[in-house]
């Protein structure tokens, strides 16, 4: 049962990702991206990472992909049906993709405990463990990410509103 569901949604996610790259209409590409994100969320559920799946839906499908679609629509010029043109550098693209895939696969496969856990992490739900880890062991990366986001926010405000030049 789990295997069937896995293959349905893995194929969906990959097909959608293929659509992102090959679609001639850039708005379609952006919507394919949302579909791909949702497919990955289901894969997280199959890996017993329910919390991560919900975050994936909330942040990626619900916010990031919408922002991508929004930005694409606002910056669109000319004919929509030819807004995502191809070029002849696909060979280099394929080479870099394969290289990246090889590196990720190497890291995953050489790590001994990469396999899916037989059941959810703890009975209390993985959200609890994750928050404990975030506020103890991974405190510094967590705070660094928060500072980074704040800087990005401040930067966006400055870019949008502009700074008053000193006379």
């Amino acid at each position: 049962m789990g295997t069937i569901v896995f293959f349905i949604f893995a194929i969906l996610a990959i097909a959608a990702a293929w659509g992102v790259v090959t679609s001639r209409n850039i708005v379609h590409s952006a919507f394919y991206l949302a579909l791909s994100f949702s497919g990955v969320a289901v894969l997280y559920v199959l890996m017993n990472a329910d919390f991560l799946a919900a975050v994936q839906l909330l942040v990626y499908t619900g916010a990031v992909s919408i922002m991508v679609v929004f930005a694409v629509m606002l910056t669109l010029r000319g004919e929509v049906s030819d807004s995502n043109p191809e070029n002849r550098k696909w060979g280099w693209g394929a080479f870099i993709s394969v290289l990246l895939f090889a590196v990720i696969a190497l890291v995953v496969l050489t790590n001994p405990d990469w396999r899916i856990l037989p059941s959810a992490w703890t009975s209390g739900g993985s959200a609890e463990d994750m928050s404990l880890l975030l506020l103890s062991q991974f405190m510094i990366p967590f705070e660094a990410a928060a500072v980074l986001l704040t800087v990005a926010l401040a930067g966006a405000v400055i870019l949008a509103k502009g700074v008053k030049e000193n006379k």
Partner: peptide, 21 residues
């Protein structure tokens, strides 16, 4: 669902995408 309330919010966030579509 153990994550009920979080799941609820995550799913309802997608409706924005449907309006945009």
């Amino acid at each position: 669902l153990d994550l009920g309330i979080f799941y609820f919010l995550a799913v309802s966030a997608i409706s924005t995408l449907a309006f945009l579509m």
